[in-house]
Design a protein around this nucleic acid. Structure first.
Length: 438
RNA sequence: GGAGGGAUGGCAGAGCGGCCGAAUGCGAGGCUCUUGAAAAGCCUUGGGAGGCGACUCCCCGGGGGUUCGAAUCCCUCUCCCUCCGCCA
């Protein structure tokens, strides 16, 4: 079913409900302020939304008059009163011009409103802590991390470990595709495949596994908020109107775009393993060594659609689902609650999961568990029908179920042995048929 | 890639440019009848915007055009079906 109704503004990108700006401006502006939004933005949006509403009324009135006149022409024609019909017709032609003019103005206001609204992020949840940026995030808990184990000892970075074992070939990857690409070999390739299968198997009872296309339309990707003036992360296929998915979240969220789901069908829980492509524009020189940041990687993504009142509970459950593989693999990690100022554009509340990698001595972000509320659903027109009647937007959530190559890299750094081999998590033995590489 | 046909409400399926947001059937919900159920009968049953409300406006795959007026005519895009070609 191609072609779903355009959003209220007929624009691209996710957006907040302008009605919040119209009906509850003070509270909404205060919440946006916590996200470090320029206060001029919500004010401008409110003013434009008002102007737009007024203009809609003018257009409707003019059109109503037009429609009534046209109906009268029809009636006159049927009555055989030709001359009168012709007179009225001539008169209506000029009214037509009037309507066209009013509509043009409406479009202008709409475009201006669009321009402002698209820069307004989702509202932060009330229980998200205040803060300006990364430094104000809150580490909620740390799991399986004993700093004394890593103090002093010599831990090689994963690229050294991997190249020594011959399972990672950065040089040939560069030859094939350039920097920030990878070639995995032998047990390295198998380890990655094992991680993916392990994660899918782990969640098979709670999520429906989807194998989606890796190329999506402009329409699909822009309605998830991953293609905006400000987001140039995705690769475009040159000769077709298609984009390589930067995350499986894009096709998964796209699944129900334009649909009205039955309440009984919620929540929907989907998972998908896909390759992910990201241009990483603007990240030049950051984490370029090894596999912390690459243009092409493999990931199992979890996505949920639920009723608004279930969002919080689903978020906690999603967090648990993302932690489980790290626990079973025995990786030291911590749970970070992002402060309002560090929240991503579309999210209202986010937990980051970070695995400790001793070789680079860093906490690597391996999952970002996000509650998006109705922000994406509004843009994608994903709704549900209450059993008692009434149609509302669903709330959406997403997070990585398991993200390579960072988990892959962490396993290599954490498992390294004095003899140069790498001990692998026992949970992967069924997939690899061994417990060590080298 | 080439040739042709199609897209209408939850589904099926009508719709001479005005009386069509849209017949009819099915499905769903409510009511009547009934001890209960079935059958039968009556009524309701898409989404969005605005208004206290009467009500008004927009949407018949998407976008654009012709016209006083478009589900209906024209252009274009997308998708689906049939046939031919190619192919893992």
């Amino acid at each position: 079913m191609p072609g779903w109704p355009a959003g209220p503004l007929g624009s691209s990108g996710p957006m907040i409900d302008t009605r919040l700006l119209l009906d509850d401006f003070e509270v909404t502006a205060a919440r946006l302020a916590r996200k470090k939004v320029d206060p001029a933005l919500p004010e401008a949006a409110r003013d434009l939304a008002r102007r737009r509403r007024e203009q809609v009324r003018r257009v409707d009135e003019a059109r109503s008059a037009m429609n009534a006149g046209s109906a009268r022409v029809g009636a006159l024609m049927r009555a055989g009163r030709r001359a009168e019909a012709d007179d009225l017709r001539a008169e209506l032609a000029s009214r037509r011009a009037e309507v066209d003019e009013l509509e043009a103005t409406l479009r202008e206001i709409g475009a201006e409103l669009d321009d402002v609204v698209l820069r307004i992020p989702n509202l932060p949840a009330d229980d998200v802590p205040d803060g300006a940026g990364e430094e104000d995030n809150v580490v909620l808990r740390t799991h399986g991390f004993d700093p004394s184990v890593y103090a002093g000892a010599k831990w090689a970075p994963h690229w050294e470990v991997a190249e020594r074992l011959g399972i990672f070939d950065a040089e040939r990857a560069a030859k094939l595709s350039g920097g920030m690409f990878s070639v995995l070999r032998g047990d390295g390739a198998r380890l990655l495949r094992a991680l993916v299968t392990f994660a899918l198997d782990l969640n098979r009872d709670h999520y429906e596994e989807i194998l989606p296309p890796h190329l999506v339309r402009t329409e699909t990707i822009s309605r998830t908020g991953h293609l905006t003036k400000f987001d140039t992360q995705a690769y475009r296929v040159r000769d077709d109107d298609l984009w390589l998915v930067p995350t499986a979240e894009v096709p998964l969220m796209g699944l129900h775009q334009g649909e009205i789901l039955p309440e009984a069908g919620l929540p929907r829980r989907y998972m998908a393993y896909t390759v992910c492509w990201r241009r990483e524009a603007g990240a030049a020189g950051k984490d370029t060594r090894g596999l912390q940041r690459v243009h092409e990687f493999h990931k199992v993504e979890l996505v949920k659609l639920c009723k608004p009142e279930d969002g919080e509970a689903e978020l906690e459950a999603l967090l648990a689902d993302a932690e489980r593989p790290l626990q079973i693999l025995g990786l030291p990690y911590r749970v970070v609650l992002l402060c309002a100022g560090d929240l991503t554009f579309s999210a209202s509340k986010v937990y980051d999961l970070e695995v400790y990698a001793p070789g680079v001595d860093k906490w690597l972000e391996v999952s970002s568990i996000s509650l998006v509320t109705d922000f994406q659903a509004r843009r994608g027109q994903i709704r549900f029908r209450r059993e008692g009647g009434g149609v509302e937007f669903v709330h959406s959530l997403n997070g990585s179920g398991l993200a390579t190559p960072r988990v892959w890299a962490a396993i290599l750094e954490l498992g390294q042995q004095p003899d140069g081999t790498v001990r692998l998590p026992a949970a992967l033995a069924p997939y690899l048929g061994r417990d060590a590489i080298g």
